[in-house]
């Protein structure tokens, strides 16, 4: 008889009882549920519903529409006129003066 067979014979009673096996399964399933990390969407939804009743897709749509409206109204504030910018640069460079005299008081 091989060593493996001898071990099997001597270890035939070494098994988990039905109760222990069921307990182990329950413990692992519980652990797996705790460990299951929700996805980004789930986490966002969870966070949102923790503080407000407004559905997340509707809130996102409102924010997008408001953003578009504000952009069309105020986007010209961000526009840069190249001619005016050049003039500002020029004026700035002409006021430049090197200080070669005097005492520095700290």
């Amino acid at each position: 008889m091989s060593l493996k067979a001898r071990f099997d014979e001597e270890l035939q009673d070494v098994v988990f009882s039905k109760e222990d096996r069921a307990r182990l399964k329950d413990q692992l399933v519980r652990l797996a549920r705790e460990q299951k990390r929700p996805g980004l969407r789930e986490r966002l939804t969870q966070f949102w519903h923790g503080s407000t009743e407004v559905p997340l897709p509707a809130a996102v749509a409102v924010v997008i529409i408001m953003g578009l409206g504000l952009w069309t109204a105020y986007s010209n504030l961000l526009a840069v006129d190249p001619a005016a910018a050049a003039l500002f640069f020029k004026a700035g460079s002409e006021t430049y003066q090197v200080i070669t005299q005097g005492v520095s008081v700290l």
Binding site: F7, D8, L11, V14, V15, F16, R21, L24, K25, L28, V29, A32, R33, Q35, K36
Partner: peptide, 24 residues
Amino acid sequence: RREEAAIHWLVDSFSDRLLKAATL
């Protein structure tokens, strides 16, 4: 995906074999 059936399969398939080896 931590599915319950897969966890049951894991325990049913390997628990006794591992227990015997660990006992030795």
